[in-house]
Structures are given as structure tokens and as C-alpha cells.
Amino acid sequence: MTNEIVIKTDKLTKKFGDFTAVNEISFEVNKGEIFGFLGANGAGKTTAMKMLIGISKPSSGSAEVAGFDVYKQTEQIKKNIGYMSQRFSLYEDLTIKENIQLFAGIYGLTDKEIESKGEALITKLNLQNESNKVVGQLPLGWKQKLAFSIAILHRPKIVFLDEPTGGVDPVTRRQFWDMIYEAADGGITVFVTTHYMDEAEYCSRVSIMVDGVITALDSPANLKKQYVAGSMEEVFIMLARKAKRGE
């Protein structure tokens, strides 16, 4: 495995007035890793992620994502990443095909590429009969699988997934992780947040944020050893219970 670093932050900080949402976080993510970004509600995960995807300017510190600077090269960052979240992923009143065309177009694929890659995607997800249906009619699990496939259609270096499996049924949730593994295997780095602690076990490495600070970062196996815990859930609860700030 190559040890190419695709995300590197150094004392990355974000303040809102006198409130420090993200407090000097420093970490590196390697190419092809599945990096679990965990933390309690209000710990600063979303704020940190917004800085990494180039839509929020840091207050201080530095970070490079896919080789680009989060202060000056946010447009290049956006071209080299994919993003999906539980809250917003696809346009509900556009059809599957239209969503693919729209997002692939935004990500800069040519019409030819959109056609061939879009078709391959629809076949892979077994959505041939549904491709002209509006996305709003699909079950949530299908939507999320489709959203993920679209987010990596332009072969980004990194894909950011913000609670991608919330509310999804247990079988589909696992199929979704199969897709994550496949993407990582193909060299796409996966940066993922989740509240399902069994999913934390599937990550190559996991960071846990408490009160704006990264308090732990290692492989799930090492974290369990370090904190003498039987599961990632125990590790998480041990660390997050120490949180002092009132969210």
C-alpha cells in the first residue's frame, strides 16, 4: 500500500466569536483509507468537515485536501472530492437519470462520459426500470446508495460522507458499506461520520472528537486495546462522557 497522504491538517481551528468550535486539530489521512470521523453532537465534526471541503474558512492553522490549500484553493478541492450527507444528497423531484446528469455535469464530466458512466451506474444498482422515476419515490436505502454512487462518479480522490446510513434498514446499511469498501479498494479515500458504532469498527482508522479537540486517533483494534474496551461503543462512551461543553 502506498503511503500517499491525501488530507493533512495542522492546528486547524475555527472560532465563532469567542467560541472555539474546532480547536487546533492535526491529523493525516492516507490514500485509500476509510477514515471514521467520530464525535458527540456538538463536538465540532460538521464544522471541521466544512473547512475540509472548502466551504468554511478556517480561523487559523493549515490544511491540505487532495493536495490543495483550504484557504486559497477551495475550488480545486471541490473538483477533487465527492460529498454526500444524510440530509441533502439528491434532488427529490428530479428523476434518477436527471440527478446523474446534473451532478456529473457539475463535477465536470463530458456528455459522453455522463452517458456511459451513468448507464453503467444504473445497471450496477439494478435501477434500469426506475431510471425515469423521480428520486423522491425511491426508498431511503436506494437513495443513499444512488447518492454515494453519484458522489464518486467523477472518481474523486476523496469522498466525504456525513452520516450516510442514518435511518437505513440493517441489510441496506451493510450493502452500503460493501460499496464503501469497494471504493476504498479502488483507491478512493473515504472520510465518514456515523453514529453507528458497529460501523466505526469497519474503518481503517478512527478519530474521536470531544469539545472541538481530537482526543483519540488510531485503528479500532488499537483504540480498544488502549482503552481496555470490548467495543468501539465503549471507547466512544468513555471519551465522549468527558465532554464539558454544553453542546
Binding site: 464525535g39 458527540a40 453532537n41 463536538a43 444524510q86 452520516e163 442514518g166 435511518g167 453514529h195 458504532m197 461503543e233 466512544f236 462512551i237 465522549a240 462522557r241 465532554a243
Partner: peptide, 13 residues
């Protein structure tokens, strides 16, 4: 109705 959706494991507990 789904009071703990999107809530972290500590707050859920």
C-alpha cells in the same frame, strides 16, 4: 417519533 435519530451514543443512552 425517532427521538434519537442523528443523536450520538452518549446522548442516546
Amino acid at each position: 417519533d425517532e427521538p434519537t435519530t442523528g443523536v450520538d451514543p452518549v446522548s442516546r443512552k
